[in-house]
Each structure stands twice: as structure tokens, then as C-alpha cells.
Design a protein around this nucleic acid. Structure first.
Length: 829
RNA sequence: GGGCGCGUAGCUCAGUGGGAGAGCGCUCGCCUCACACGCGAGAGGUCGCUGGUUCGAACCCAGCCGCGCCCACCA
């Protein structure tokens, strides 16, 4: 799993794993995603490509800091008490102890990652890459610092990006509050679900076309409880239909109002602080209260003053932190931002031109639409765990220095420097994962050999958060797209159709499933149930995988213990060589095998894992085991050479074909195969051999199989005892040998009058058969045939059908009619 | 508010213009010397509803009903 870094990118096959959080445990999403990546990595490795699957973990700023802070709390400590340096040391200690857990779990899944090249988003070389990127973006003028409205997460005490916010429906109370108009007895009634934010109001807005208030624009209201004069402004954002058509403007605590405020040059007041408590700006009465407490107090005060016009329940969507689950507090703060528009341009073109192909294709449009309206990215976080932003301030001369390495003193005044306290958004570092893991910014052999990577599999939820950003940084910094293909896979839901989630208790632990059924079973099951649309987790599919592993083992045992003579020598013994059998059944299985190889391979290559797995399954189970092995058992027991060669060859190819999906059991069986000359993981992957495709043998054996099935069905219908061999006569040539053996019929030259006809076979009378059952069976079949004949005749007597349907369809219908008529004729004798 | 997707056998899902499929479950018969995690044979579906296009519709089009997801600054 550790390929040499040599040669150009085109000769290799490389994949960068979506780095799991160091705090994480393997969940079903990892397991599915890992199964897909491993299937393709293993297939390409077997094909002789230099296959690198880079593994690593993400430092996951908020999540990891939260875990360690929780640990501290149980000791009665806080991170503030510990101080930044000691706290960060503590997190590293935690990482050293627990950070490899998820890596070990990937091993249990069978992921063929390069465990010797494991990376971490905070390891030394990676930090260098992050700082280089920050510096270059700053120098280009993309990164800047600004006071701006951000999503403040009171849970993690940090700003978070728009993409880390989720909206939930919440029932709040909508309060209507009267704002008296200065120098008049009129009032403007405004509506709000957050009355406490009124303390930071700096205007009231109405729609410019709203005639009701036209005369008030330019006048002032007086803010109740506070007494501040608020200008009445006109702005198109105000919907005259909503409430009274008057909107309180709180630029400090509402994203909409912030925009309006900037346009109108309004004052921005912060009445709620980063700790979620009211600030001095809220006034003496409220300062220090939590926002929720303040809400109660403000409402009570308004009620007392008679300003509260109405209260009504109101359902609307409210932003919550995806990280901490707490309600977002929009507020203005000084943060670092990254302009995205310039970076987005080439990333849009790359996808438009299919330099990055997105599968399934509908996601291409979703990506493009989002990218075309991309907004600045707030990249700073008020955390301690992460990449501390490489910016230094000189308090003496107000100089700001951005550098990849810590400068000693201020370049301008030689004064002392202090580094920015904030760290970078975790996604800032994961955005450069595909090339930073390969050693960028150094020109390493790995980078030359393995960049760009071959493909990325992902759930759609991180298409914007991660995938889009990797495309942008890849083009900007590594000079090429980070991957050629993006496959957006389905989400595996809980058994009841809900999301799998820890908080809902709906998660299914893949490691428990591995314990229960084996990693191969889980991998098979996940691939079989996956598709492009969401599916419920299916225990049955995993069990199907387990059953397949078992079947592989047992069928292999039958073959390996009997083929090719007694096994006393150690392997490698005799190679499985390409057989050239003469019997139709041998040629049949080889033909079916090669077709399956071609089809399964094509499906794996196009990310159609569900069909690839089930097709391989049904070939192996139904055709190879149920039919071929049963057909050839007598020859196999005699260790006949031709059947041995055919079976060993087929087994080798089936094991190799299935290895990318079920690596453990196939590798283990391979140890016993006489052609073994090393690990199956690096054995060659089968390529469909067209010369073995044999339509003639397929047709001939197909007939035998059909006849066998009809004979067996007939036996069941007439309730013939299972073990009894029934006498029969075949007019016009005896069927293939296996038909009689597998259906338990004995063909005799003569033997009296037939009691029934099953295709070309005449069943003869015998003591075990109930004559009445035979007669009713015959009648049932005649009825079936009469209805088929009627259906075909009806179709063919439709002049329009005959005239307009394609000739071969009409011809097919005629042939069917002939066949059914002939059989009916026969049975009517 | 905009966008995407789904509704097919009891369950979970394939099938996207020419006679309805898989796995599980169910019924019947089999401990047949690889496998009972098995073998053989079956039952089971007006393909959400209503219209339309077509010689022909689960499949294409329109509308309706039900469900899910993503995006979005109406207090």
C-alpha cells in the first residue's frame, strides 16, 4: 500500500481520503465512503497502477477543543485557568493518546491506505503549507480584516461561517411594539421576535412606496425604554405587507438590518456581547443579563409603559450552530475574511469544461450556481486549537505584519510584536488537503507523482464546505484541479428513514456490524445498498454479503479440495492456466464469466457500485455455484483435467474480481489456490477476454438449464417424492447429460405410453406419480398457453402494430405465437 | 420563496418506451458426500392518482396527492 513516488501523475492512481476528525469514531458515512474508495484503489492497484491512498486526520478545531474542555471540566478546571499554551499542550497530549483511534478503525474496514504516509492538518509540514497559502492570499489582497456581521456561536464562543449554520423551524413570539413619533401623537408599530435587540435599534424603516408612511420618512421616532432618536428611513427591503409595514432596524444584531444600516450609514450598536450577555450599551437596567433574561425584562418594561401592542405565536426559521447546536447570535465583530470571487472564477470554468467531472451530473449545476453567488468567507475563529493566524501586530506603530514565519521585531519601528489570537477555520486547512498532504509547497516527488488525485467520493453536504474550496485552492496554488472526478454518493439513513445521528440515537455503528458479520459483509452490503439517492440502512444487504463470503469459502473448498489431483505439496503449485475446454458447459461458464468481468468492471469504473456488487453476486452464486458446480461435480470428483483447469481459472478470476469489494475472504482463499504467487491485493485484475465469449455454448446450456427447471417444476406440481428418479423418454435426441441428473429423471429407450410432455421430454408412467395431479397440471398449462396465444394473436391482428412497430418486434411476436401454438398442439394430443 | 429528488411485491430497493425484477420475509419439498449463512419449487404487484402523447407507457408530457433533501436576509 506504499507506492514509490516516481514517474508522472498520469501513471499513478491516487486518492486523498476525506480526513476524518481526530476526535471522530468511524461512522457509517466513513464506512460507505471508505468502501467505495478502497474498491477503486484496490482495482487500480491490481491493474498495476501506482496506487496511493493518502490517509490522515483533521485537527477539527471546535470539536477537539470541546472534547478537551469537557475533560478539563471534570477536573474542575477551565481552559482560561490553564492558559493558552498549556491548554494547547493538553490538546496535543489528548491527540497523541486518542488521535489514532479512527486510523485503526479504517484498518478494520480493510482500507488499503498508505499508513506510512499518514498526515495531520497540524503537523509541521502542513502548517507551513497553510501559512504559505494565507500569506499569498493576503498579498493578493483577498484576505482582509473587517468589522462585519458574523454568525456568532455562543456555544463555541466563536464566529462560524455561513456553511456551518443550519436553519430550524422554531416557534417564537412575535411582539408588536409602538415607537412614538417625535413631536406627534402618532406611533409606528414594529414587529419583532427579539425585543431585547431593540436596545440596539438605530432606525425605523418603511418601504419607499408605502403611502401610509411617506410623510414620516426623514422624521424621527423615540426608542421606548432608551429614549434614543431613531431616523425613519425608506428602504426597499421592507415588505409593506408584513405586519404594519414598519421595520425596526438593528444593524448590530440582524444580518438584514446590518446591510440596510451600511447602505444608510446608520450607527452600529452592540447590545449583546460575545458571551451572550447584554453589554453596557444595553443600558444599566439590562447590562449583564443574558439575552433570554433581557428579553423577559424588556417585554415586562414595555408592557408597563404600555408600548406592547400585541403578542402572537410565530413560527419561522432560525439559525443554529451546526457545531454546538446553540442558537446563532448575529453580531458585529472584527474578523478575518477571504474574498472568494476571484478564486471562484477558474474553479467555475474547470467544472464547466469538465476538467473536474461531477457525478451524478445534476450536482454540477448545483455547484455552479452556488459558486456564481459565492460570498466572502469568514476564516477567523476565536479558538485556541488550530492554525494561529500568521499575523503580528505592533502596538507601538500600529503596523500589521503577515508572514509565514514569526518575525522577531516590528520591521518599521523595531517594537515588540504580538501575534493574532484567533485561529483559522478548520476548513481553511482542509481546503488544501489534496496537495498539502503530498508535500506542497515543496516540489516533492510525491507531488509530481500523485497530483492531481484521481477522484473524490463525498456526501453532498460538504460539496460547498470542502469540495468547492479544494478546487479553488488546487487551481490557485498547485496549478491544477485537485481531482478529475467527484462522485457524490448517497446518504445511508437509519433503518426507520431518519438521519443517522448521535443525538437522535439513530446511529448504527459500523464496527459493531463488522463484529457481527465481518468487514467484507459490511463493505458488500454498503456498496450494494448505495446509489445516488438516499437509502435506508439494510441489514439484509449486509447479511447477503456475509452469506456471499460464506459461499465463496465453501465453493472454493469444493474446488480446491478436488481439482487437479491430491493436494500434498505446498504452494505455489501448478498455475491456473487459460483453459481451452471442448465441452459446452465449460465453455458456457467461461463465457458467462468473461461477460461478468466486463460488465462489473465497467460498473465499478462508473461508480455504479450497487449494480457491480449484485451482478458479481448473482454470477457467482447462481451461475457458477448453482449451475456449473452442480453440472460438473461428477467430473470434479474424478479430478478430470479439463474441468479442474476451468474451475481453477474461473476461481482465480472471480477472487480477483471480488477482491476490491471483499478483500479479506478473497485474500484468504487465494492462499490456498495453486496459482498463488503472492498477495491477491497485488495480483492482476482480470480483463474481460472476449475470445472466450461463446454465444453457441450459452444458448445450448441455456436450453438445458431451462429444461431442467421445467422438469423440476413439473415434479413439484405432481408431488413426486424428491429422491425418486422418474422414467422418461426424449423424442428427437436425448437432452444434455446434466438435465436428467439434476432433475432426477432417467431417460430410457422405450417404456410404454407417456403420461405427460414437458417440452421435448415425455414423462412415463410410474408408481410414484399421481395421475390426477398430472391431468390437472396439463390442463393448467393448456390454459396458460391458450391465453398466451390469444395475447399474441390480438397484438398481431392490430394493423397499426404490424404497420408501425419495428420489424424485429413484430417478428419476435410471430415467433412466440408459433411456439405457443406448437406446444398447445402437442399437449392436446 | 427557489431548486432537486422520491412514491414499483409484506419490507428495503433495482428497472426509465416493446410481455413486471433482486435481496430479505412468506408457502411447499429436501440434513442430495462445498455450504441449512444451504438446495429445489412456488405464492405475492390496477408500478401514488387523473388526464394526455404513442401501434404500444412503470418508463415521455401536464395536473393533483403524499414524502424527503438542499439553498434563501421578510422582521
Amino acid at each position: 500500500f506504499h507506492p514509490d513516488a516516481e514517474g508522472a501523475g498520469g501513471e499513478s492512481f491516487s486518492v486523498a481520503i476525506p480526513p476524518p476528525n481526530v476526535t471522530g469514531a468511524l461512522h457509517m458515512g466513513h464506512a460507505l465512503n471508505g468502501s467505495m474508495q478502497d474498491a477503486l484503489v484496490r482495482m487500480n492497484r491490481m491493474r498495476g497502477r501506482k496506487a496511493l491512498w493518502t490517509l490522515g486526520t483533521d485537527h477539527a478545531g471546535i470539536a477537539t477543543q470541546a472534547v478537551v474542555e469537557k475533560e478539563l471540566r471534570t477536573e474542575g478546571k477551565t481552559r482560561q485557568e490553564l492558559g493558552r499554551e498549556a491548554f494547547v499542550e493538553r490538546v496535543w497530549a489528548w491527540k497523541d493518546e486518542y488521535g489514532s483511534r479512527i486510523v485503526e478503525q479504517y484498518k478494520r474496514l480493510g482500507a488499503s491506505c498508505d499508513y506510512e504516509r499518514e498526515r495531520f492538518t497540524l503537523d509541521e509540514g502542513y502548517v507551513k503549507a497553510v501559512y504559505r497559502v494565507f500569506k499569498q492570499l493576503f498579498d493578493k489582497g483577498y484576505i482582509y480584516r473587517d468589522n462585519y456581521m458574523v454568525n456568532w456561536d455562543p456555544g463555541s464562543h466563536s464566529a462560524i461561517s455561513d456553511l456551518e449554520v443550519e436553519n430550524r423551524e422554531v416557534e417564537d413570539t412575535l411582539y408588536s411594539i409602538d415607537y412614538p413619533v417625535e413631536g406627534s401623537d402618532r406611533v409606528l408599530t414594529v414587529a419583532t421576535v427579539r425585543p431585547e435587540t431593540m436596545l440596539a435599534d438605530t432606525a425605523v424603516a418603511v418601504n419607499p412606496d408605502d403611502e401610509r408612511y411617506a410623510d414620516l420618512v426623514g422624521q424621527h421616532c423615540v426608542l421606548p425604554l432608551v429614549g434614543r432618536r431613531l431616523p425613519v428611513i425608506a428602504d426597499e427591503h421592507v415588505d409593506p405587507e408584513f405586519g404594519t409595514g414598519a421595520l425596526k432596524i438593528t444593524p448590530g444584531h440582524d444580518p438584514n438590518d446590518f446591510e440596510i444600516g451600511r447602505v444608510h450609514g446608520l450607527e452600529e450598536i452592540g447590545a449583546i456581547g460575545p458571551d451572550g450577555r447584554m453589554t453596557e450599551e444595553a443600558g444599566e437596567r439590562f447590562a449583564g443579563l443574558t439575552a433570554a433574561e433581557a428579553q423577559g425584562a424588556v417585554v415586562a418594561a414595555l408592557r408597563e409603559e404600555g408600548r406592547l401592542r400585541a403578542e402572537e405565536p410565530y413560527v419561522h426559521s432560525v439559525p443554529f450552530s451546526h457545531r454546538s447546536g446553540e442558537r446563532i447570535e448575529p453580531l458585529i465583530s472584527l474578523q478575518w475574511f477571504c474574498r472568494m470571487d476571484e478564486l471562484a472564477k477558474p474553479a467555475i470554468e474547470a467544472v464547466e469544461r469538465d476538467e473536474v467531472r461531477i457525478t451524478p451530473p445534476q450536482w454540477k449545476r448545483v455547484y455552479l450556481e452556488w459558486m456564481r453567488e459565492i460570498r466572502p468567507w469568514c476564516v477567523s475563529r476565536q479558538l485556541w486549537w488550530g492554525h494561529r493566524i500568521p499575523v503580528w501586530y505592533c502596538d507601538a506603530c500600529q503596523e500589521t505584519i503577515v508572514a509565514e514565519q514569526a518575525p522577531e521585531r516590528c520591521g518599521a519601528c523595531d517594537g515588540p510584536l504580538r501575534q493574532e489570537e484567533d485561529v483559522l477555520d478548520t476548513w481553511f486547512s482542509s481546503a488544501i488537503w489534496p496537495f498539502a498532504t503530498l508535500g506542497w509547497p515543496d516540489d516533492t516527488p510525491e507531488l509530481r507523482s500523485f497530483y492531481p488525485t484521481s477522484f473524490l467520493t463525498t456526501a453532498r453536504e460538504i460539496l460547498f464546505l470542502w469540495v468547492a474550496r479544494m478546487i479553488m485552492t488546487g487551481i490557485e496554488f498547485a496549478g491544477d484541479v485537485p481531482f478529475r472526478d467527484v462522485y457524490v454518493h448517497s446518504v445511508i439513513q437509519a433503518r426507520d428513514g431518519r438521519r443517522m445521528s448521535k443525538s437522535l440515537g439513530t446511529g448504527i455503528d459500523p464496527l459493531e456490524e463488522i463484529d457481527r458479520h465481518g468487514a467484507d459483509a459490511l463493505r458488500f452490503g454498503l456498496l450494494a445498498m448505495s446509489s445516488t439517492q438516499d437509502v435506508r440502512y439494510s441489514d439484509a444487504k449486509v447479511q447477503q454479503g456475509r452469506d456471499l463470503a460464506n459461499k465463496l469459502w465453501n465453493a472454493s473448498r469444493l474446488i480446491l479440495l478436488n481439482a487437479d489431483g491430491p493436494k500434498t505439496e505446498t504452494y505455489p503449485r501448478k498455475s491456473a492456466h487459460r483453459p481451452q475446454p471442448s465441452r459446452p458447459e465449460d465453455r458456457w461458464i467461461l463465457s458467462r464469466l468473461e461477460r461478468t468481468i466486463g460488465s462489473v468492471t465497467a460498473k465499478l469504473e462508473s461508480y455504479d457500485f450497487a449494480h457491480a456488487t449484485t451482478e458479481a453476486y448473482s454470477f457467482f452464486w447462481s451461475e457458477l455455484c448453482d449451475w456449473y458446480l452442480e453440472i460438473v461435480k461428477p467430473r470434479l470428483y474424478e479430478q478430470e483435467e479439463e474441468v479442474s483447469a476451468t474451475l481453477l481459472w474461473a476461481l482465480e478470476r472471480v477472487l480477483a474480481l471480488l477482491h476490491p469489494i471483499m478483500p479479506f475472504v478473497t485474500e484468504e482463499i487465494w492462499r490456498y489456490h495453486p496459482a498463488n504467487n503472492g498477495h491477491l491485493a497485488i495480483h492482476s485484475f482480470p480483463e474481460a477476454d472476449e475470445s472466450l465469449i461463446d454465444p453457441e455454448a450459452e444458448a445450448r446450456v441455456g436450453e438445458g438449464i431451462e429444461l431442467t427447471q421445467r422438469l423440476r417444476a413439473w415434479r413439484d406440481l405432481v408431488e413426486a417424492p424428491a429422491a425418486t428418479v422418474l422414467p422418461a423418454r426424449a423424442d428427437g435426441g436425448e437432452p444434455q447429460e446434466f438435465v436428467g441428473r439434476l432433475a432426477r429423471f432417467e431417460f430410457v429407450a422405450d417404456g410404454g405410453d407417456p403420461i405427460a410432455a414437458v417440452g421435448p421430454v415425455k414423462v412415463l408412467a410410474s408408481a410414484e406419480i399421481d395421475g390426477e395431479a398430472v391431468r390437472s397440471r396439463l390442463e393448467a398449462r393448456r390454459e396458460e398457453l391458450r391465453s398466451e396465444v390469444a395475447r399474441a394473436e390480438g397484438k398481431l391482428s392490430n394493423e397499426k402494430f404490424v404497420a408501425r412497430a419495428p420489424a424485429e418486434v413484430v417478428e419476435e411476436e410471430r415467433e412466440k405465437l408459433e411456439r405457443y401454438r406448437a406446444e398447445l398442439e402437442e399437449l392436446s394430443e
